[in-house]
Write a protein that binds this DNA or RNA. Structure first.
Length: 687
RNA sequence: GGCGGGAUAGCUCAGUAGGUUAGAGCGUCGGAUUCAUAACCCGGAGGUCAUGAGUUCAAUUCUCAUUCCCGCUACCA
């Protein structure tokens, strides 16, 4: 099963489908799209047959929510973001053979067919469960459409999966007074049928295929897959009650669509078909031929889907579908020491970058490759961006090219001189430079893009050193014959750079190739010593990179600073006042003061503290989710707190809690216990 | 809390199937140079390899515990 030695006839390369509810940012690029594009460009230059497939993931609940919020249709949302994403990828030079979308007709057809066959072959199990139903709209609601009062912070408008006020994750059953976000109607529970893929049945096969057969996968990927398999796989629902997506194509499935994780990876197949239909190619040779090598480029949050679930789907389908040979998942990129976040607008958006930094695609590609999160989360800073541009890309690569071309025009009016009478040192340099194509290529084939780029720069360093060692600007006065050889050798290095930089820096590579009159070179060509023959006329040199000034970086930092400020201002206004309640209703709640007698952490729970409270009559146990904010527990003993005395007891992590301790939630989410300003008798009521 | 990944020079990262002085790039300091976008080239300084134990003749590398960061997942009457 080891693929190390196997020779493949063609490569199918996929990139995680970006979710079309927002634009693409530098985290996506560094983790997925730039490494994938570098890989693909390299393979093409090697003369391999490659298909590079991408597309937008356009189904799922968040898109429908966003549409609801903005008062438009889901299709409007995905049209907008698909447009932005596709265009920005093109401008960055991500060289897809096809970038399509899961709302396409071809995808709907393909995904439906895929489901139908699995269904017909009995690969699913069917289960019925009780779900919330909106009687007015006559449909089942997904978690996100169910709103109610947050059981934790009491905020109105908490969603069935999460309260945005306090950030706690919820299940619809926990919500107080659940009702429909669509109609406002109170919800009822009704049984609904769904189809499940029994992943557990594929466990022995997964073990064999990955744990035995793919020990070469990256540690983060292998480790996570192993832990999933070892802890026992569960059947996973492949359908949902929703009206946005691919309708479930069997009888009795009205109002149901394919679950987005089931539908999205099939998009790789649909998009392949869409392309092949246009070009007259046979799509099956890409997906059903053991001589095709499939590689999925993804981020670490996607490992399970691409290593376990999608392979199980393909395996269940059978019919010769191939499996990925590798899934080089990357870690995450931070921005200025803070997690990138779409909702907090903490990101550098690709489409904005392209607008603000015209012609600087390669700078971004360079920086994100040089600092790619290949083994651990990395940090992007604008200072680093500037340094890498000014001190590496420009100073080593751009500068070397420029010095050579300027000298060639100065000494020889732009005509390449001949290599003659090589010294030992010349030969050593030639040998070294001829080794780079292989060195860099091997690194790329092993997904070590950062190191590969480093080696490319080392070729530039080799050139700079050779030049300094031989000082042609001095020798031209004393030994012009010798200078011809030095310049000729240097020019071959420039030519090599023009070829080998193409996977990483396609725009600059093409610019350089045009300057020295080289076109359509293959990777293997770079192994030849003489790429620019004697007498060849070079075009006028232009600068490949320009210096990035402090002011540019400062402007970007200021922009981020403002986002941070705006976030602080927006995030914390007091919550809207809740619905009016009657005095009688209020009096039903019995709030009292109690004295803390004991306090300890609840085992195996991060957030829970267990209190023993003197309520004036007895000792009662109350569990409260404030462990994060109170670490010195001994200091709490003796303090008085307010608590709800007449809640039904409830079991939390095995401990029965008899009430709820009241605390205030500060704007940063911190919980602060409420304590009477003077000592009072335990058990006295608060009102 | 469970599982996975990570913690190495001022910064961003490599690395060690355990073995004399732990690497690279950038930054910094010094030198040399002027063909080149004040870029290049040479040299120096800079690390108790997160913390604490254990195994070993020997641990940054293996084992265990702890702390912190990231992802998945559980708990917040």
């Amino acid at each position: 099963m080891e693929s190390e030695n196997k020779q493949f006839k063609r490569y199918l390369v996929t990139t995680a489908l970006p979710y079309a509810n927002g634009p693409v940012h530098i985290g996506h690029l560094a983790g997925v799209y730039i490494p994938a594009d570098t890989y693909v460009r390299y393979l093409r230059m090697k003369g391999e047959e490659v298909l590079f497939v991408g597309g937008s993931d356009e189904h799922g609940v968040p898109i429908t929510i966003k549409a609801e919020k903005e008062g438009c249709t889901p299709q409007d949302i995905v049209d907008r973001y698909h447009g932005i994403i596709k265009k920005s990828f093109e401008e960055l030079g991500i060289s897809y053979d096809i970038y399509s979308r899961t709302s396409s007709a071809m995808h709907h057809e393909t995904a439906a067919e895929f489901f139908k066959k699995l269904h017909a072959d009995g690969k699913f199990i069917e289960k019925e469960s009780e779900q919330y139903f909106d009687p007015e709209r006559q449909k089942f609601l997904s978690d996100r459409y169910i709103v109610g009062t947050c059981p934790k912070c009491g905020a109105e408008g908490a969603y069935g999966d999460q309260c945005e006020k306090c950030g706690s994750s919820l299940s619809p059953d926990e919500l107080i007074n659940p009702h429909s976000q669509l109609s406002g109607a109170a919800l009822v529970k009704k049984p609904t049928k769904h189809w499940y893929l029994p992943l557990d049945q594929y466990e022995p096969w997964l073990r064999e295929w990955i744990l035995e057969g793919h020990k070469e996968w990256k540690t983060n990927v292998y480790g996570q897959v192993k832990s999933w398999i070892d802890s026992g796989l569960q059947p996973r629902a492949v359908t949902r009650d929703l009206d946005w997506g691919v309708p479930v194509p069997v009888e009795g499935a009205d109002g149901k669509v394919l679950y987005v994780w089931f539908d999205a990876p099939i998009g790789y197949i649909s998009n392949t078909k869409e392309l092949c239909e246009k070009t007259g190619d046979n799509w099956e040779r890409w997906w059903k031929d053991q001589d095709t090598k499939m590689v999925h480029f993804i981020g670490k949050d996607n490992i399970v889907f691409h290593c376990i679930i999608f392979p199980c789907m393909l395996k269940a389908y059978g019919d010769g579908y191939i499996l990925p040979e590798n899934v080089p998942a990357n870690e995450f990129l931070n921005l200025e020491n803070d997690k990138i976040s779409t909702s907090r607008n903490w990101a550098i958006w690709l489409h904005e970058y392209l607008e603000e930094f015209p012609g600087k695609q390669d700078v971004l590609r360079y920086v994100l490759t040089a600092n790619a999160p290949e083994t651990k989360d990395n940090n992007f800073t604008w200072k680093d961006y500037q340094d890498r541009n000014n001190n590496e890309l420009l100073a080593i690569f751009g500068n070397f090219v420029n010095r050579i071309l300027v000298l060639t025009h100065k000494f020889y009016e732009g005509a390449v001189p001949a290599v003659a009478n090589l010294t030992e040192a010349d030969q050593a340099v030639i040998d070294e430079m001829n080794g780079y194509p292989k060195k860099i290529g091997t690194l790329i084939e092993n997904y070590k893009f950062r190191e590969a780029l480093q080696e490319l720069m080392n070729l530039g360093r080799l050139g700079n050193k050779y030049l300094t060692d031989n000082e042609p600007w001095k020798q031209i006065k004393t030994d012009p014959e010798r200078v011809k050889t030095v310049m000729a050798v240097s020019l071959q290095i420039v030519a090599k750079l023009a070829i080998l930089s193409e996977p990483f820096l396609p725009f600059s590579a093409h610019k350089l190739q045009a300057m020295i009159g080289m076109e359509g070179m293959k990777w293997a060509d770079a192994e030849n010593t003489i790429l620019l023959p004697e007498g060849k006329m070079l075009n006028k040199p232009e600068l490949l990179f320009e210096k990035i000034e402090d002011s540019v970086v400062e402007a970007q930092l200021k922009k981020l600073e403002e986002i941070k400020k705006a976030n602080e201002l927006n995030a914390w206004k007091p919550a809207a006042v809740k619905q009016t309640v009657s005095f009688d209703d209020y009096m039903k709640v019995d709030v009292r003061v109690g004295t803390i007698l004991e306090c300890c952490k609840v085992p195996k729970a991060d957030k829970l503290l267990q209190f023993l409270i003197d309520d004036g009559m007895k000792k009662r146990t109350i569990v409260s989710g404030i462990a994060k904010y109170y670490t010195e527990l001994e200091k709490l003993v003796g303090k008085q707190v307010c608590f709800v005395a007449n809640f039904e007891p409830r079991k939390l992590k095995g401990v029965v809690s008899e009430g709820m301790i009241l605390s205030a939630e500060d704007k940063d989410g911190r919980l602060v216990l409420l304590t009477p300003s003077d000592l009072v008798a335990p058990g006295c009521s608060v009102g």
